[in-house]
Design a protein around this nucleic acid. Structure first.
Lengths: 149, 149
DNA sequence: CTTATATATTTTATACTTGAAATATATTTC
DNA sequence: GAAATATATTTCAAGTATAAAATATATAAG
């Protein structure tokens, strides 16, 4: 063949597929969080991060971990505080910083979200046998280092 | 083993990995579009869709194709029209509808974006040999039908 | 100790996103 | 053909997202 398809085409197709898949799943999760829990994906992400850190996280740690901007986290936390899901705690020794952590009620609420979330994913990705899922995860892992612009 | 890890855990890991990978790539693309072309991903997506339809698309076709809300497209198109990238065309026979299509300048501009975009993806996904990319694409395809909530 | 610099966070301006309500026009039904 | 219903689009309110500027506090340098 004189002019075979360049490698970039396969990768482009993969990217479009990757994007379509993750957006589709995200849309479904967002919709279900809204309808069944009156919540959102960003709130879920923030609460999940806080769940993994009993003593709380600084605003900047949270933003860094979720790879979103500081200002973004400020807004999400504001609303979570209004809803008594999260509380702000002073950091002793550094009056610039604030730590943020789940309230008792926030934990209870998140437990429910997390359980539903795991079941939804299990359903949405049921096309993958666990071994395939693990294999795919490993493959995707290899992209990691490429995306540190 | 008495209590082996449930299948849902593998799928959950896959989802988190999928999300992390696509968000990482998206962030890189967004940043580069901003810095190198003073543009954005949503604009790119809209222009790419219009590029595939010489005669233009109705607002609702555009929204449906990109799977975003109508109101969302209205805003993006508004700004693209301001920048002379896109023009609105009346649909004869239906005065409710508007078609939207790339201007000459919009096409020229998009050609540059598309070329850079393909090169970025080729770079970001260089960890995948073309055959692996094709295989992965096919695997991901299988999720498709699951996400029509 | 006082200025310079660095760090943590919030605020601001702008854009994107959604779902729902509003508007305008078409189509169907009686 | 007038009323009811459906469709196409925009507007609206609220939330999410970014980068950059502003603020507050801490640390370093002199």
């Amino acid at each position: 063949m004189v002019n075979p398809e360049p490698d970039s085409k396969s990768r482009l197709r993969l990217w479009l597929r990757l994007l379509k898949t993750s957006r589709g799943i995200e849309a479904t999760l967002r919709e279900r969080l809204r309808v069944e829990f009156n919540s959102t994906l960003p709130r879920f992400d923030v609460m999940a991060a806080l769940m993994r850190h009993e003593d709380g996280l600084r605003m900047s740690e949270l933003a860094g971990g979720l790879k979103v901007s500081n200002g973004n986290v400020t807004g999400i936390i504001e609303r979570l505080v209004e809803d008594d899901m999260v509380e702000r705690v002073a950091v002793k020794g550094d009056r610039r910083a604030t730590k943020v952590r789940l309230t008792r009620g926030g934990k209870v609420h998140f437990e429910k979200l997390a359980e539903a979330h795991e079941a939804w994913i299990d359903e949405l990705l049921s096309a993958f046998a666990p071994e395939d899922a693990d294999y795919l995860s490993a493959q995707l892992q290899s992209v990691e280092d490429q995306t540190h612009d």
